[in-house]
Design a protein around this nucleic acid. Structure first.
Lengths: 198, 198
DNA sequence: GCAGCCATTGGACTTTGGTACAAATCCAGG
DNA sequence: CCTGGATTTGTACCAAAGTCCAATGGCTGC
């Protein structure tokens, strides 16, 4: 049997859809030790380390976060959760989590996993510090200028005005930049040159 | 259909049991592009980065290692694999990997995951002190979720798929977010939530 | 000189992002 | 019961972003 421990006002529809027979419980209510899996929903801003010790949970439980983050997930697993996922994850995903956990696995969402693995990779390579501005080496002078402005949030029109060139030219530079840096649009360019890891 | 790309002498019994209809292939042989999942077995001492580029693999493939390690797994995902697991994993586990990958997930074994998460924890502790997220206080739960995804570079379509809602809804949330945070587009939103100062 | 890169621009086009206006459900609190 | 916020979706429309093909002129190095 599945349990959803949730002190918010409304039960997420996707969970109900994933587990039509699942039971909704307040944090103060009892959960059978025989529960197959217990889903614990965090309140906004709450962290697993604050909540979990206050509850009497069965062996298998999973944290549900409305706004999951790397910090929440790591902490969830640290306090014994078998996984952490978005409260609003699709029903298929929820059922998938169930299957993985039932087989003794740990569940971590794809984006987080990539995030974490990317961090690990940097540790393994220890390259992070050596090449802070590698992208500049791949671009021509003008392209660097355009990339910096776009990276700060400027529109094509603004870049054009500031550099006194046609908007069309800005687009041409951007197309070249995207190709050279292997990014698909200005937002990912911004993340790249501002050193935001994802 | 499942394929096992394996140049060793014997086909692992567990794989045969997990996918009775699966096809065993040498590395030189052709794999249908319509393959559901392609399992690639590493030879002893071999690394994914050496092998994968030499093969013509479909979109979804998983690395099988007789002796999996953190290095092998990270490298496997780096070169595009959807997961990495022990060649001799139980049939149930193999089928589980299949399900996860079929749903767009990445699969990483439990022990590796714990290992990697432990490393990540240290980085997070440093990051946590620096930036209190004021913007989160202005948004509803769902809006926070959308803002985070967009801030990481996701397109409207990707956000919609990930949250299992219509693209139109993503736009509605974004319009509300822009208004509340007083930014004009997704790029400036990204700068705001990633704490980039200009 | 000529090949090659850089910077520039145009026209035509497709895709994506964002807004306006509207409306549905659910649920909380008065 | 009714109001108001949160979440969801629709149609339609406009603007911005991005691509493709093509061209010009400047500069450098062989």
């Amino acid at each position: 049997m599945h349990y959803l421990i949730d002190d918010t006002a409304r039960m997420p529809a996707n969970w109900r859809e994933a587990f039509p027979e699942g039971l909704w419980r307040r944090r103060t209510e009892h959960v059978a030790a025989s529960a197959r899996l217990c889903w614990v929903r965090l309140l906004p801003g709450e962290l697993p380390a604050q909540l979990v010790p206050t509850l009497n949970l069965p062996a298998n439980f999973v944290i549900l976060a409305d706004a999951p983050s790397e910090a929440i997930t790591v902490q969830a697993l640290e306090v014994g959760a078998a996984g952490c996922c978005n409260t609003y994850a699709a029903p298929d995903v929820l059922r998938q989590v169930d299957v993985v956990v039932a087989n003794g696995g740990l569940w971590v969402g794809r984006s987080l996993l990539q995030h974490v693995l990317a961090s690990t990779q940097r540790i393994l390579e220890k390259k992070a510090e050596s090449a802070p501005q590698d992208w500049q080496l791949l671009l021509s002078g003008r392209e660097i200028t355009v990339a910096q402005l776009v990276g700060q949030g400027a529109s094509n029109k603004e870049v054009a005005r500031q550099l006194d060139i046609a908007e069309r030219t800005v687009k041409a530079h951007l197309t070249a930049i995207f190709e050279k840096l292997q990014v698909r649009d200005r937002l990912q360019l911004s993340l790249r040159i501002n050193g935001v890891r994802d």
